[in-house]
Design a protein around this nucleic acid. Sequence first.
DNA 1: GGCCGTTTCACCCTTTCGTACGATATCCAA
DNA 2: TTGGATATCGTACGAAAGGGTGAAACGGCC
Lengths: 146, 146
Amino acid sequence: MGKLSMTRDMLKPIAIYALVLAGGAFVLQWLEYKYLARAFAPEIYIALIALGFTALGVWVGHRLTPKTVAPAFERNLAALKSLGVTDRELGVLELLAAGRSNKEIARSLEISPNTVKTHIANLFAKLEVERRTQAVQKARELSIVP
Amino acid sequence: MGKLSMTRDMLKPIAIYALVLAGGAFVLQWLEYKYLARAFAPEIYIALIALGFTALGVWVGHRLTPKTVAPAFERNLAALKSLGVTDRELGVLELLAAGRSNKEIARSLEISPNTVKTHIANLFAKLEVERRTQAVQKARELSIVP
DNA sequence: GGCCGTTTCACCCTTTCGTACGATATCCAA
DNA sequence: TTGGATATCGTACGAAAGGGTGAAACGGCC
């Protein structure tokens, strides 16, 4: 359910829209009532008012809806499992995607650089790539890393 | 200006909402008219109708606004300029971000691998990085590449 | 003409990366 | 207890990548 979640910076435009609509409401109502009240039955007239302001509201609601949805990265655990990527390899992959060198990754994880190379080689095989830049790209596509 | 751009898959929900609102309009109008018409002046009554349906419209408009905005990558030309990244360097950067090797980039652009290395070295200096994975990361942050 | 930015290329050297082996240790389930 | 998955580390070698420097060619601009 897409709730109308209010944020502080939405209040100002809302107030502006509210004022515009309130003002417009009275003007339209008073002016058009004079001409339409006699031409249509009250039910028809009110229905027109309702539809008109509904349309206006749709537009306003559309404008108020934030365009940029929060990133909200969710790791694709299914992909990880189907590829057979282990926890340790995932840890290496994250540092890899962060632009770290093998030596830095080794220091971070407190393991030998040789072990890092082993993990990365296994990752390459599982991701079906042969370069670390490609590995990062593919991992991103698969939502394994942000 | 955020236009209410219509897409084919928005038409069905719109039709549903329209029917709901139209039906609700007549019911509400007929029922409440009986009770409120005598309690308030017509102007007040109509204003209430207008405000109520505006609120309803706002909610509908909010619901109709697509949550997931299209990717719509827009290159940050300002960043490119402020960093002094040239057109050629940008071309190299794109292939770099695609996971290509220097040799592949050279073939794609029909230039010498040495030239590619020069461009990449210049890119590293301008992006203030020292590894291609970091360059890709930074370029992405700056919206230079998707 | 002379200057500047851009693009191109070359050479040398060091470091990093990637690959291909093998090896050991642990843990857990069959 | 045997086997498989995982994690660890090693060696060795070739391939990329990266750093430093220099330079030629081109076009635009003053």
